[in-house]
Amino acid sequence: MTENSPEPDPFAELAREINQRFSEELLVQRAQNAVTVAQAVGLVYREALMAGVPASLAEGMAGEYWSAEMSLTSEVDPEEVD
């Protein structure tokens, strides 16, 4: 290092690493949630069809379920997660 360059801040580096790990974990968790919701959407669609619901209505039901679940997961602010 030169005389004019500041010393690296080990705390800042540690905080950056922790933040990156939490961000990666949050991304994985959100992806897993999306997969689970997609499976549930398929279940809603198949069950509706098997119950005799017309395909267009079953598709609408599944789409509404997807929208409702995804709006719940998107309301979580990553800055507020402890």
Rank of each mutant, 00 (worst) to 15 (best):
residue 32 Q to P: 00
residue 28 V to F: 09
residue 40 A to Q: 14
residue 17 E to K: 09
residue 7 E to I: 12
residue 57 L to A: 15
residue 71 S to V: 11
residue 35 V to E: 14
residue 5 S to N: 05
residue 48 A to S: 15
residue 27 L to Y: 00
residue 27 L to F: 00
residue 33 N to E: 15
residue 31 A to M: 07
residue 74 S to L: 07
residue 80 E to T: 13
residue 18 I to E: 12
residue 15 A to R: 12
residue 47 E to T: 13
residue 14 L to N: 06
residue 19 N to S: 08
residue 67 S to Y: 08
residue 49 L to I: 14
residue 16 R to V: 01
residue 18 I to A: 09
residue 37 V to P: 02
residue 56 S to Q: 11
residue 17 E to Q: 15
residue 26 L to E: 05
residue 26 L to A: 09
residue 35 V to T: 13
residue 6 P to V: 05
residue 65 Y to S: 05
residue 45 Y to M: 04
residue 62 A to M: 08
residue 65 Y to K: 06
residue 61 M to C: 09
residue 56 S to P: 03
residue 26 L to H: 10
residue 48 A to G: 01
residue 53 V to D: 03
residue 49 L to Q: 01
residue 17 E to T: 10
residue 38 A to D: 10
residue 82 D to C: 02
residue 28 V to Y: 04
residue 26 L to S: 06
residue 36 T to Y: 04
residue 6 P to E: 07
residue 16 R to P: 00
residue 31 A to R: 11
residue 52 G to A: 12
residue 77 D to C: 01
residue 52 G to I: 11
residue 76 V to K: 08
residue 63 G to N: 13
residue 36 T to M: 06
residue 43 L to M: 13
residue 35 V to S: 12
residue 45 Y to W: 06
residue 34 A to S: 11
residue 12 A to M: 04
residue 48 A to V: 06
residue 23 S to T: 09
residue 68 A to H: 08
residue 26 L to M: 09
